[in-house]
Design a protein around this nucleic acid. Structure first.
Lengths: 232, 232
DNA sequence: CGTGCGTTTGAGTGAATTCAACGGCTGTGG
DNA sequence: CCACAGCCGTTGAATTCACTCAAACGCACG
């Protein structure tokens, strides 16, 4: 296994997983460290646009990124959030199918798609990692489809909080990089519903919200129950 | 390019695409033809179960397959339909994350996961095709997330009809292999809403429905407009 | 000619939305 | 240090779209 592949713990692999190509130990073998260039993006800056030729792959070093689809009447959908370590920009077609924007000031590593593919062609471990990465991405999309298709607002928020607790550093307290609007567009809700649902969770002592973007999980079991109404 | 890779037309690649690994011309190089075994499944038969070890990959020869997630309170979500030529059973983890069932009597080609991966390791074109296949699968999942997160019932049905018209044989008339309940669980709606929306489309002369499972598209433009409320 | 399943239709309900106003940070300039 | 402006988030009231519950329809099959 490549050093920069994610070592997924048994439990972690059951949860929505970040799309990781980490450089934990051996940067010498990591294509991003070897041939990637570093770029800085300010909060809300566009990294690439929908329908633009898909020429690069990106890895988040610090900050956070969202991928969006916009409908002509203004409806917005956020397909995913990318946090440090996550890879994004994978495309089946020649152009990006969504735009990518910095949720806040972010540092990214950029690698040319062709260069990385050439690398993968030469190194079996690289392509294994790339494919694995794509498969995990797919898995998360499938999870999210279930959420969007069949879950109520409360369950969506529960899933979101657990996902963020899993992916962000800092045990019980989550410091959200994204706005309520971002959360709403990710979960297929309105900003008002997100706000109301979080307020209700706070009344129910499930979470504590000392500041809008700082959420502490008080009763994780309750969240897991909401989220785990799945088949045995 | 491998002969059994999908040759996607420019327009087709913009639409939800089946996950194809076709054997159009050279069965001699197609791993499914070479090392796959044929299996028959009756209508509603389970092909594999959620959480079962993911040991095989499947290609639909004839019939149709659905992948499902079940929640403990009975809610069902259909992740995808697979039609002749489509590949399914790709997994990032060691076990299937959804069950697969025959929508109707179906003939499938089965290949051991390990055998196919060994094949891919030896043949660069095989893994390219496999990865490409995964990427297209991901693309369709992303499309579907937008549908489930941000589209109204009418738009969902429009997208569904256009997808099926694209993927099923027979120009303007669609012969649906799946029930209304299947459609509802795929689109994140109830069976009643699906039925009512189709009836309304028939009143609006957008479709004609001589039999429940036979739908003719009368005004494709209207459907495309409903579906194409996307950013320029 | 029933029986049974899948589909349609109807009536009433409800969860999330829309529209609207308010509250509370944060940063800036007086 | 305070006042104010501009965001972002919360709360309230009314609406709506899809859902639930219920019944009828129609087709296929024995």
């Amino acid at each position: 296994m490549l050093s920069w592949q994610t070592k997924s713990a048994p439990t972690a692999s059951m949860l929505p997983m970040p799309l990781n190509l980490r450089s934990d130990a051996a940067p010498a073998t990591d294509p991003f460290d070897q041939i990637g260039t570093c770029m800085l993006f300010e909060r809300n800056a566009e990294i690439f646009a929908e329908n633009e030729p898909a020429e690069d792959l990106y890895r988040v070093v610090s900050g956070a990124v969202r991928t969006c689809n916009l409908m002509s009447d203004g409806r917005r959908h956020i397909g995913a959030f990318y946090l440090p370590g996550d890879l994004f920009g994978l495309e089946a077609s020649a152009s990006y199918r969504f735009s990518a924007e910095a949720v806040r000031d972010s540092r990214l590593l950029v690698v040319g798609r062709r260069a990385l593919l050439a690398r993968a062609a030469a190194d079996r471990e690289v392509w294994t990692a790339l494919w694995d990465c794509t498969l995990r991405h797919l898995q998360r999309a499938q999870n999210h489809m279930l959420l969007l298709g069949r879950k109520c607002a409360q369950e969506r928020l529960a899933a979101f909080l657990l996902e963020m607790a899993e992916r962000l550093p800092g045990g019980g307290a989550i410091e959200l990089p994204m706005s309520r609007q971002d959360i709403a567009d990710y979960l297929g809700l309105t900003i008002e519903t997100v706000s109301r649902t979080l307020t209700q969770m706070e009344r129910d002592r499930i979470v504590e919200i000392p500041a809008a973007r700082l959420i502490e999980l008080r009763n994780r079991n309750a969240l897991v129950e909401m989220n785990d109404r799945m088949a045995a």
